[in-house]
């Protein structure tokens, strides 16, 4: 029971991070039908931006309040990562829109290689450990020496995720930008004819996805306290799995899928074997795609003859 509760808490935390990244995949796929392969690496870069600014704020500028520093870091990371993603879309994807279908995918894989190797060159290949930012934990139960704990960082992650998702949901559902996005998803040509600025809408979609990935990056850095240039790939693939599991194109699906993948991973590690936790995640991806390609909340694709 204790293990169950502990893994549930850990799983929701991890799942929040996956869910935030998954939204970026699902939104881009929804609007231009492309798997943005570089998104995992955008997430990794955002964690580096967060790391750099956390150090600058605390050591150079001497901000003593961790809460304030974290808040500022979050904002900066969201802005700069959004900018990065905007540039990537502009340089590597937009010229290829409407051409050969594989071209954007290859371009995205190229971009993913560029991002991780750029960070390796610019920031060095070693792990970047930070001192723990938030230490406090709440002990929920303590029996037979196994304490179930809920740490402050986990609370921060869950609350931040929930608040940002609510804000994000409002933007997508209630604002003209969200309406333009949904219009482009349905029919890009028609949306353009009706006066929607399609290029701008797609750019903003990339920016929004990247901003959420930056939240995930900041949270990841705070949670694990270490980041490496190669940390983009595995969380990226898992978040994509989450997006597919929830039904690609569906925003609630991405969050649900993220939580499920997080829970599956932590429970698998808790009860079976840590070694094979990634195998479990990848197997689920394969199984879901084979037997339920539309995902949990997605719409089935009907083949027209």
């Amino acid at each position: 029971m204790e293990i169950f509760l502990q893994q549930l808490i850990n799983g929701i935390t991890l799942g929040s991070i996956y869910g935030l990244i998954a939204i970026g995949y699902t939104m881009v796929f929804g609007i231009i039908g492309m798997v943005n392969f570089a998104h995992g690496d955008v997430f990794m870069v955002s964690a580096f931006i967060a790391l750099i600014f956390f150090l600058v704020l605390t050591t150079w500028l001497g901000i003593a309040s961790v809460a304030l520093a974290l808040f500022l870091v979050l904002i900066i990371a969201m802005v700069l990562t959004g900018l990065l993603s905007w540039s990537i879309e502009r340089i590597a994807y937009r010229p290829l829109r409407g051409s050969f279908r594989l071209a954007p995918l290859i371009s995205a894989i190229g971009m993913s290689i560029v991002l991780s190797n750029f960070i390796q060159v610019a920031q060095g290949p070693r792990n970047k450990p930070t001192p723990p930012m938030v230490r406090d934990v709440i002990v929920l139960t303590d029996s037979n020496g196994y304490a179930v704990t809920l740490s402050y960082k986990q609370i921060i992650i869950m609350v931040t995720t929930a608040v940002l998702l609510a804000a994000f949901w409002y933007v997508v559902q209630k604002t003209p930008l969200g309406r333009a996005q949904r219009a482009c998803e349905q029919d890009r040509k028609m949306a353009a004819l009706l006066g929607v600025n399609v290029d701008r809408t797609i750019s903003l979609t990339f920016v929004m996805g990247a901003a959420l990935a930056a939240v995930a990056g900041t949270m990841y850095l705070m949670y694990y306290g270490v980041v490496n240039f190669s940390d983009g790939f595995v969380p990226g693939v898992k978040a994509f799995t989450a997006a597919v599991l929830g039904g690609i194109g569906s925003l609630p699906g991405a969050v649900l899928g993220g939580l499920l993948i997080g829970l599956i991973e932590t429970f698998w590690s808790g009860y079976f074997s840590i070694d094979y936790k990634d195998v479990a995640a990848f197997s689920i991806l394969a199984i879901v795609l084979i037997f339920m390609p539309q995902g949990i909340l997605g719409r089935p694709e009907v083949e027209k003859v």
């Binding site: 340089i91 290829l96 954007p104 894989i109 190229g110 971009m111 290689i113 560029v114 190797n117 390796q120």
Partner: peptide, 11 residues
Amino acid sequence: LLFGLAMVGIM
């Protein structure tokens, strides 16, 4: 890094 850039550029 250059390999990745070449991929994007050639595409």
